[in-house]
């Protein structure tokens, strides 16, 4: 498989990465190189092999239902580029 400029443009849109045409041109062969290389995995016989689900044999722990956090609005908003009246502010969204 190899990716086209159109596909790269689509992926960039999905990833919310604005890209100039020059950048795109440069990226297409780079991505194709990498993809060609990773495609050697196709040689591996993985019939009947389950995908790895846990890196180490460890079970998911569940925590108790207790309120232990929150009430820290200043910390939450403290690094925000734009915050007003206790809210984060973003360019207006039209639904």
């Amino acid at each position: 498989m190899s990716v086209t400029a159109e596909q790269v443009r689509h992926i960039a849109r999905l990833a919310r990465l604005e890209m100039s045409e020059e950048e795109l041109e440069r990226l297409v062969p780079e991505l194709n190189n990498i993809l060609d290389w990773v495609e050697q995995l196709g040689e591996v016989d993985t019939a009947g092999v389950e995908p790895l689900t846990a890196v180490v044999p460890n079970a998911l722990r569940l925590r108790d239902d207790q309120v232990t956090d929150g009430e820290c609005r200043d910390e939450i908003l403290g690094n925000a580029p734009v915050a007003e009246h206790g809210f984060f502010a973003v360019p207006k969204v039209i639904e």
Partner: peptide
């Protein structure tokens, strides 16, 4: 997935954890 409260109607962004 976090220890912040779920009660309805709180002041904005007060029931928010770092998570």
């Amino acid at each position: 997935f976090s220890g912040a409260a779920t009660a309805y109607g709180a002041e904005p962004n007060t029931q928010v954890s770092l998570v």
